[in-house]
């Protein structure tokens, strides 16, 4: 089981390296945001596999935390790309 988990971690790290290639090269900022979102998802997998490897369940709250932070980051970046600002001002008052 230990060797299998190490092999799985190595495969996930290789896919993160492939995503970093797209993050560096990506022609538009949107490509970079999509690559960063997928890197966050792969990081969640890495946390799960690592907590299986060292046999502790104290790291499992980090999974939910990373998912929420990655979603908020993607929403903020997409609002910035669309309008130029993230939190719009209320004009009616």
């Amino acid at each position: 089981m230990t060797y299998f988990l190490w092999a799985a971690i190595v495969i996930v790290v290789l896919s993160i390296v492939a995503l970093v290639y797209r993050l560096v090269k990506g022609p538009t900022p949107s490509d970079r945001v999509v690559a960063l979102d997928t890197i966050g998802v792969s990081l969640i997998c890495l946390v799960g596999l690592f907590s299986m490897l060292i046999d502790t369940s104290y790291f499992l709250e980090i999974i939910l935390l990373l998912a929420i932070l990655s979603f908020i980051g993607t929403i903020a970046f997409s609002k910035f790309i669309e309008k130029g600002d993230i939190i719009t001002r209320d004009n009616s008052r």
Partner: peptide
């Protein structure tokens, strides 16, 4: 907590990609 994380990822992953591609 893991089940909650799975549910959250299942909801937010496609929504994030949709908002990202529409705004770009």
């Amino acid at each position: 907590t893991i089940l909650l994380g799975i549910l959250f990822l299942f909801i937010t992953g496609p929504v994030g990609a949709h908002i990202m591609s529409r705004s770009s």
